[in-house]
């Protein structure tokens, strides 16, 4: 049993952390999140340059990046492209992604029906043309290409061939859109059992990725809480001496460590196609999503009034944490699946 990332992966982590910290300090992050699009348009070429979009990256390499983009939210459709869409793309399209020429996302949920990643899709394709309506498409207004789930498998549709309605969102750097396809030209990516199997793998990966981002979010919230507890004085002492404050930090620390262990386990299972991948990813997503929310809520409480302001960065993390916790259903939905493994 070896739980450590490789030296190269730790190097990648260091680069990523520095790059993101420099590019997205808290002020800049707020500016982008409150901007018209919520996207830093220039960063994409840089990501390609740094190799973050390379098809050769293993999922463990990506895991490092995902954790860091939770610690400092990356205002670009990286999660959507690299995690949700990339596994479905053909080689030619994947190459364009790798070169930084294309962003993509996955469109699965439909209005008025169950909206899980593995629920049946009603969108249809006939004669190479796709018709249907998708909602809550992550980064839907920020990408060039949609991978679309349909009753006949997975298809690729250019964003320019779809009617995209962007939505405002609590998390300004990851906004959903509604997307309508009215006989849009569609390229088949996978069908039948292959499509179902692929979608299952995309979901596992997405759960692991959500957990990793959540770990980054929780770590930042904890760091902010600890720094403030050392600095802020009340009744003549730093508030960190009060156990009502310090014990919150300890509890967040413990949950964060547990979440991190599960997230790395899940990431390894995905990278290795391990037989436990499904359970590991369900467990990691359920636990880490809730841990990130828990961390942010405790950090806000520990900051008093300042933590409740729009100016303070904490609410940005809180809202990202809420997005992560809600992704493809709340933790209880994943626990229900774990329960089925255990009890049925």
């Amino acid at each position: 049993m070896d739980f450590a990332f490789s030296e190269e992966q730790e190097q990648l982590r260091g680069f990523a952390r520095d790059f993101l910290a420099e590019r997205y300090d808290d002020v800049r992050l707020a500016q982008i999140a409150d901007s018209e699009t919520g996207v830093d348009a220039e960063v994409w070429a840089k990501l390609a340059e740094m190799g973050w979009l390379d098809a050769e990256l293993t999922f463990l390499d990506q895991a490092v990046l995902l954790e860091e983009t939770g610690y400092r939210p990356l205002a670009a459709p990286y999660f959507s492209t690299a995690v949700l869409a990339a596994p479905a793309l053909d080689d030619e399209t994947a190459k364009q992604v790798g070169e930084g020429r294309l962003t993509a996302t996955l469109a699965w949920a439909e209005p008025g029906v169950p909206q899980g990643l593995l629920d049946a899709a009603g969108a249809t394709v006939s004669g190479g043309r796709l018709t249907g309506e998708k909602v809550l498409v992550p980064d839907g207004a920020a990408v060039d290409l949609f991978v679309v789930t349909t009753a006949d498998g997975l298809y690729a549709v250019d964003a320019s061939d779809a009617a995209v309605t962007p939505h405002g969102a609590l998390d300004g750097t990851r906004r959903p859109a509604s997307v309508r396809f009215d006989g849009a030209p569609a390229r088949p990516l996978a069908s039948g059992d292959t499509a179902a199997e692929l979608l299952g793998r995309i979901r596992d990966r997405a759960y692991a990725a959500v957990a990793l981002e959540a770990v980054g979010v929780a770590q930042r919230a904890l760091d902010l809480l600890v720094a403030y507890a050392k600095d802020r004085k009340q009744f003549g002492k730093p508030i960190g001496v009060y156990q009502a404050v310090s014990h919150k930090a300890s509890d967040v620390y413990v949950r964060l460590q547990e979440a991190r262990s599960l997230a790395y386990w899940a990431a390894w299972c995905v990278a290795e196609n391990d037989p436990m991948a499904r359970q590991a990813c369900l467990a990691a997503k359920a636990f880490a999503g809730e841990a990130a929310v828990f961390a942010c809520e405790n950090a806000i409480q520990g900051h008093g009034g300042i933590g409740f302001t729009w100016e303070h960065v904490l609410h940005r993390y809180y809202k990202r944490a809420q997005w992560l916790a809600a992704f493809d259903g709340p933790a209880r939905a994943q626990r229900a699946e774990v329960a089925a493994f255990l009890m049925d």
């Binding site: 359920a286 774990v338 329960a339 255990l342």
Partner: peptide, 16 residues
């Protein structure tokens, strides 16, 4: 079911 699954997840998190 939810509570049992929660403890299984907790157990795995401590193991790892």
């Amino acid at each position: 079911r939810d509570a049992v699954a929660r403890e299984w997840i907790e157990m795995q998190s401590l193991r790892f």
